[in-house]
Each structure stands twice: as C-alpha cells, then as structure tokens.
Design a protein around this nucleic acid. Structure first.
Lengths: 173, 173
DNA sequence: ATGATACTTTACAGAATTGTACAGTATTTG
DNA sequence: CAAATACTGTACAATTCTGTAAAGTATCAT
C-alpha cells in the first residue's frame, strides 16, 4: 500500500498550478522545470489531470495550463483517484480470487470488509483535505496530532467516552 | 494508492492461520487450497510472514505453520508493512526528486507533510485494528459509521466542538 | 537407515508501471 | 500565410511486481 509515482508527481504539478490561481497559467516547460520532471513526463501527467477535469488547457502559442476550479473546491481524494485509480478496486473480490472462479471468501469476507472500511476511512480524510489546505500549509489542522490524543469514533458514543475513559476509547460494538 | 496483491493474499493466509489459534497448525497445501492460491505462491507469502515473525514454521513430515502470537496482539499495520513495505517510503524526498539531485520541495514540502500525515493517520487506524477484530467480524466497531457521524479531531478541541457545531468540525488551526 | 512429507531458497517468465521519444494538431505573432 | 510555440496522442524501452518452477534442506514415520 503506497503512493504511486504518478500520484506523487501529479499532485505536485497540480499544487504548483493551484498556486497561480484560477486565472494564472503555466506552460508544461515551466511546470516541468519547477518540479524537476522531464517535459514529456510532465505532459503525460498534465494530460491525465486535464481529462479528469482538474486543469484546463489552452493550445497554441500563448497556451498553457490553469487550475480548473478554486483550490478550496478540490479535495485530495478526487486528485489521487484521478491519478492512480480507486483506492480499492470495485471488482476486488473478482480480481483477487486466486485460481478459483470467485473469491473464496465470497459469502463472508472480513478481509474485504476491513479493507473496504479502510478505503472509506482514507477517502473521508482525503476528501476533507483540499488543495487550499496544502497551499496554505494547513497541514497541522488534522495532522501532527499526538497519537494518544487521536480518536476516531462514533459521535454518539463519544460523549460518554470523554467523561469516562479518556485514554483508551472502546465504544460498544 | 492501492492494496497490493501480496498484501491482500498474505493477509488472508495469516487470517486463515489465526483462525486455528496459537496451537493450531496448517500446511502450505492446506492454506493454498483454502485460499485458492498455487502452492508455490502460498509458500512465498508464508515465507515473508515467517521472516516478519508473524508466523512460525515447523519443518519435516509433521511440519506446518502456526500463528506466532495471539491474534489480539497483531495489528493490521504490522501485517501490511511486513507484506508490502512502509506506507510512505522514508526516503520519499530522495526517491521522488525527479531529475534533480534532491526534492525540489526540500525546504518546505507540503506534499510530503500531507502524505506523511495521511500515512500516520492510516497507520493509527490499522494499528488499532487487530487480527482478532477480523476473526470476530468486529468490522463494525470502527467501520460503517455514517460519514456525518465520523469525526477525527484533537480531543481537547473536541469537547467544545460537540457543544457548538455538531455537523462541520473546524478546530482552530 | 530410508523414504515420504513439508518447509526454504533462488531463479525466471509474464504482466504492469514508469518514464521517454516522437510525430501530430492547434493557435498566435509578424 | 508562415513560422514559432505549446498542447495531444501513440508507441516503446526500462524497471518493477506478480506468480511459477525447480532444486535443496529438515524432520518424522516406518
């Protein structure tokens, strides 16, 4: 489970463009130089971003790329899935079924449950973090919280938890 | 960003073994058949798990694999990193520096901040979810919570948030 | 002892991903 | 209109990952 190269570089290119604002513009050459990428590679990445509707391209002599929307309106989830596909393949069960025709855990597959749940979890986090957050350096808003202070719970169960066991959250199953 | 095949299958093999308990045992053949994998491939996966200290192997005629520790003591984070390497490469900046000698964002790299933060976030979630949770089907404890009820916040800021804005959490930056 | 069984290790073919090369199309400037 | 500039699309070499193959080592039953 890792960030792919395309996701990494693509996100950076988009971030650079976002820094110029909606009315700003940069050519592939400029972006490539700023990010230390080759021009053909930057072209490919920008092409992906354009087809995903995240940037708009102007052709011709005075052409270049601009960010398609306000950075506040672009979540990381949309960006990363555009660049690297879905977090969990929708046909996961079908794809990873080994030599059998279908997933051997088809009926009751806790692995898929947990991985699907993780994906939703990551998606939630990534969706709520926007390009604007990255631009503003707002990484500390949801990040860098000491682990002991980090909780991920159902709100309803949380009120009780806050007044009872401050250290080890254990809501009813 | 995705779950790799080795992570997926390796986790399943480990889960199957965990179902037999610490004193239980299964041969590669049995595991391979149960998971729909080829015997050589299952061998490779079990080898990885063994070197990571997650399973123990007994050689010889009555040999086989057993889970190394109580499933309650094995978190998903340990498993997935053993099978697929770290979520974020420690030498991320060095590796993904394009054609330059070092990451062009070296001094102030919000991309690395956010990705590193995400990794810590995922790590926290995965560490707190154990094999036992998967065995018991306890996927609902931290999963399948409606998004509107899901909060990820600093505890200190949370008490105030619970009494003020129940829908859109916005702690001070 | 000896053979059967089962884990261990290394090497390798096929597939997917990465990054590059290059020819093509569109637009502006003079 | 013609040249320059910049995006677009396809094809391809290099690398990495996936899954297989096969030879080797250890242990137990007889």
């Amino acid at each position: 489970m890792r960030i792919t190269a395309v996701e990494e570089y693509g996100l950076r290119c988009l971030l650079t463009l976002a820094g110029k604002g909606t009315s700003g513009q940069m050519s592939i050459s400029e972006i490539a130089e700023k990010e230390g990428l080759s021009i053909p590679y930057a072209s490919k990445l920008l092409g992906i971003l354009r087809r995903a509707g995240l940037v708009v391209a102007a052709r011709g002599r005075t052409g270049g790329f601009s960010i398609a929307r306000d950075p506040k309106e672009i979540g990381l989830y949309e960006i990363l899935t555009a660049l690297g596909g879905p977090l969990i393949d929708p046909n996961h069960c079908q794809k990873y079924s080994g030599q059998l025709d279908e997933c051997v855990h088809f009926a009751n597959c806790s692995v898929h449950d947990i991985l699907g749940g993780l994906a939703g979890f990551v998606q939630d986090f990534l969706s709520k973090t926007t390009l604007q957050d990255l631009l503003a350096g707002n990484t500390s808003r949801r990040l860098f919280i000491p682990e002991k202070d980090l909780v991920v719970l159902n709100k309803a169960a949380l009120s009780a938890e806050l007044t009872e066991a401050p250290t080890t959250p254990e809501p009813g199953a």
